[in-house]
Write a protein that binds this DNA or RNA. Structure first.
Ligand code: FES
Ligand code: FES
Lengths: 138, 138
DNA sequence: ATAATATCCTACCAATTTGGTAGGGAAATT
DNA sequence: AATTTCCCTACCAAATTGGTAGGATATTAT
């Protein structure tokens, strides 16, 4: 399951997506509107900034805003940044690969099935974007 | 990601599947062959027994064995028992449903996409069985 | 300048989950 | 009655999760 933090990230991002092009949005504004603990949200938005999904501005008139269009930010990217691997096993992860101890990858049946599962999941999560989140909600 | 415990469960089950029909297998045998900590494995097998995937026999000649054919035990079932929900959000889980606070299910775009993802995942994990694990490994 | 505004950074914290271990009890077999 | 094997309860350390606190830093307005 996705962590609470990741769910917060999606809620915050969808709010920013709804306000795309309207300039910087205050953390405190997002916090109140989306009911996310302020200081926790601060941290989340900062992480999203560090991977270039968001841009920020300090001082009066400042805040956070999407760096690119909501149509260009897919869900897989967000999950990887905040939640971590999408694959069900480390030996199957594209972005967080780790070898399985005591298991031979060449002849591992579990791995093969989890690879198929990963591909099916990614096919959806890499195609769906923040834009889809907003417009799936009407 | 699946827990280490779940990976142990799959390794143990695939060993039991390979030996299906050959009578009870010792925990200690599985532990050594599949390199799983003995006491931890004890616990795992017992949980699988409680949901009727395994049967056990005590005393000499005893051990654990699959209660039904490897073709009838799918991966989704195993994951749910040992790892928990398969869906990425509680509001989308079929077997572990929980309402999302501060989120209206009717108009939630995230939920809709996660439902699609869940269905794609389940389509695979409910179809693939222990038998497939064994025969995908050759 | 300097005050005000707002993000950024570091450190800490409690509760829960994960990945075990220890020790003995209960049932079946010899 | 001894041996074998699973079963049950309790405990434990380390990691992760979901935060909070307090101030440093950058920008803007006066
Ligand atoms: S190689 Fe990763 S589970 Fe076998
Ligand atoms: S209802 Fe579960 S995320 Fe919106």
């Amino acid at each position: 399951m996705l962590s609470k933090k990741t769910r917060y990230a999606f809620r915050a991002l969808s709010y920013l997506a709804e306000n795309y092009g309207k300039g910087p949005i205050l953390i405190s504004d997002i916090s109140v509107k989306k009911k996310i603990p302020l200081k926790f949200l601060e941290n989340i938005l900062n992480e999203l900034k560090k991977v270039d999904l968001l841009e920020s501005k300090k001082g009066k008139g400042g805040g956070y805003y999407l760096k690119v269009s909501p149509k260009k930010i897919n869900l897989a990217t967000v999950i990887r940044v905040i939640n971590g691997p999408i694959a069900l096993l480390p030996c199957v992860s594209l972005n967080f690969y780790e070898r399985c101890e005591d298991c031979d990858e060449k002849h591992c049946g579990i791995r093969k099935i989890m690879t198929i599962t990963r591909d099916a999941t990614l096919k959806i999560l890499e195609k769906k974007t923040l834009h889809d989140i907003i417009f799936a909600s009407f």
